[in-house]
């Protein structure tokens, strides 16, 4: 009986290990290509393992000053600003919604919830942002429209509701207002959900190519992901092009440089996770129970 148990555990671990390796495979291929020698890629194709060992692609990515570093700075800037502002504002909204005595609770909940069910869609949103609010080609277009996400608001509200009422009651008897309760008691007790939402917001912005594709024309405001996307588009153009037309080939980086760029762009998204993992599962679950 005991032995059967043990065998089963080993089988389980084996299966999950194979699965994890398969899932990680695309990452490995990306890194392998970026470390390969360009000529060998051209003659032998991509491989699971690096063909030769050559760091010049990375050297190029970091030395090529203009575009990539600029995009890095812009992306980091709007990602961090959005993360901080959105967590704060969503928590500020979620707190009143978690208070039983709040009269506007039902109305405002519905107001927020309705946006999950119904939306104006791409074109009207595009019109409002570019022609009414005039946010096109500014850094704010990356930030303002994504500050409030109903899903996370409700996640936070549910989490706040789980905090024992006695804690805020006792503060109130001591004469504390809601702002004091919110900043001094609720926020410090809600680290798991705040960290989880912060992580998701950061990643959503770090991975944002869509905003730039729609709203950004200025070279100096292009985000990293959009830059990568454009490179891919140029390659496609080159392949589909009828002969006789010309595309600026200089704008298309070599195979290894392209993959090195992808690695450099994906890197931070993978590196931040360990810092949040402590809170992650807890934050994700406590909040997702329906309320």
């Amino acid at each position: 009986m005991k032995k059967k148990h043990k065998n089963r555990q080993i089988g389980l671990i084996l299966f999950l290990t194979i699965l994890s390796v398969l899932i990680a495979l695309p990452f490995l291929i990306l890194v392998s290509i970026s470390l390969s020698e360009e000529e060998r890629i051209l003659s032998e194709g991509y491989g699971l393992l690096p063909r030769g060992l050559d760091f010049s692609a990375y050297e190029f990515v970091f030395k090529n000053p203009a575009s990539i570093l600029q995009a890095y700075a812009v992306t980091a800037e709007f990602s961090v600003i959005t993360m901080v502002l959105s967590v704060l504002l969503m928590a500020l909204l979620a707190y009143p919604l978690s208070r039983r005595e709040f009269k506007g609770k039902k109305g405002i909940s519905l107001y927020i919830y309705f946006t999950m069910l119904f939306s104006g869609g791409l074109v009207p949103t595009y019109m409002v942002i570019t022609q009414f609010l005039h946010l096109g080609d500014t850094i704010w277009v990356y930030i303002l429209p994504s500050l409030i996400s109903p899903w996370y608001v409700f996640m936070m509200r549910t989490f706040f509701q789980g905090i024992p009422n006695e804690i805020s009651e006792s503060a109130r008897i001591d004469g504390a207002g809601h702002y004091t309760i919110f900043f001094r008691m609720i926020l410090p007790l809600s680290k798991p959900v705040l960290a989880t939402v912060a992580l998701f917001m950061f990643l959503a912005k770090w991975n944002d190519w869509y905003t730039a594709m729609l709203y950004i024309n200025k070279e100096s405001l292009v985000s990293l992901q959009y830059m990568l996307q454009r490179i891919m588009d140029n390659i496609k153009l080159l392949q589909e092009m009828p002969s006789g037309m010309t595309v600026n080939i200089a704008e298309i980086p070599s195979e290894t440089i392209r993959m090195a760029m992808a690695v450099v762009v994906a890197g931070p998204a993978l590196l931040v996770f360990p810092f949040f993992q402590k809170y992650f599962v807890k934050g994700l679950t406590v909040g997702s129970v329906k309320g």
Partner: peptide
Amino acid sequence: FISWVIAAY
């Protein structure tokens, strides 16, 4: 945590 752009690569 990976964007579709990078997944496309």
